[in-house]
């Protein structure tokens, strides 16, 4: 009896939300069961309520001035840091994706692609202004510049591709200085919370990315109608909900973007970055 070690109890992770740099449970106290590809129990995920969405928007708004005020170069460094942290947790993410049903090879490929996607967008941080801005020719003694500025608080409905899809919708939003509330994939929310652990340890200021897990159909209308949200990415919205969400979003003239949800491995192009930019044009007297 004393010569046998007692069997060790497994320490299992509680999957919570990610709001303002912290990991709170849902205000409602609810959770829902996440299953693997074969329908077996994997874990309980927090089921966010509209009040969690409200709190997340408040945290996102609070983070906006600081994040958008950083130099693009610094934002690029931080995005690259996220890629480094993700690379360091490669095995953990492969394991999570395999539990969600991916084969060993597919899971490894997806994590590699996600890391590369962060690096790709990190490189764009200090090049966006040169590509989307301009020195406009005007007939007068003035310089005339157009410069891109972030739209503000963006609500993102992430697609069901649990890691690569998520990274592909979040990175282009924050690279230009926006801050975002992300509603994670409903059937596969767990990699999003593990990704939040990566974000929390990457010098990304708290509140720049906030992750909610739960029922999309429950949370999305509150975000779409929220008067303090400036833009809406409907990538992960169900086709039948799009019309109502667009109509809600019109309440304060949000920018609405709905990209295709296919082919995450393809070259993403700049569409997702430019969708959440405003253009500021200034006139400046020339000469003395």
């Amino acid at each position: 009896m004393s010569d046998r070690m007692p069997e060790r109890l497994a320490v299992r992770k509680t999957y919570k939300l990610f709001i303002g740099g912290a990991f709170p449970r849902s205000e409602s106290g609810r959770s829902y069961v996440v299953t693997d590809a074969k329908g077996r129990f994997t874990a309980n995920a927090s089921q966010a309520s509209r009040k969690d969405a409200r709190d997340a928007v408040a945290a996102t708004r609070k983070a906006f001035p600081g994040w958008s005020g950083r130099t693009p170069y610094n934002r690029g460094q931080i995005l690259y840091r996220i890629a480094e942290m993700l690379e360091g947790r490669r095995d953990q993410f492969v394991g999570e994706l395999r539990r969600a049903g991916a084969s060993k090879g597919d899971a490894a490929d997806e994590v590699d692609a996600a890391v590369d996607r962060w690096v790709w967008y990190a490189g764009w941080a200090d090049k966006l202004a040169a590509v989307t801005g301009a020195a406009n020719p005007v007939s007068g003694p003035y310089f005339n510049f157009s410069a891109p500025e972030p739209t503000g608080v963006v609500a993102v409905l992430a697609p069901d591709s649990p890691l690569l899809g998520l990274v592909s919708v979040v990175a282009p939003v924050i690279v230009s200085g926006n801050t975002c509330v992300v509603v994670a994939s409903e059937p596969a929310p767990l990699p999003s919370i593990t990704l939040a652990e990566v974000l929390a340890t990457s010098d990304l200021p708290g509140g720049v990315v906030n992750v909610l897990t739960g029922r999309r159909a429950e949370i999305a209308p509150w975000l779409a109608s929220h008067m303090d949200v400036n833009a809406l990415d409907l990538t992960g919205a169900a086709a039948e909900d799009v019309r109502a969400l667009e109509s809600d979003a019109a309440g304060n003239l949000k920018r609405v973007f709905r990209g295709a949800e296919t082919g995450w491995t393809a070259d993403p192009g700049t569409a997702r970055m430019t969708a959440f930019l405003e253009t500021k044009t200034v006139w400046h007297p020339m000469g003395v």
Partner: peptide, 9 residues
């Protein structure tokens, strides 16, 4: 109104 408002208003 039934929708969340913001400090801008």
């Amino acid at each position: 109104t039934g929708v969340y408002s913001g400090p801008d208003y």
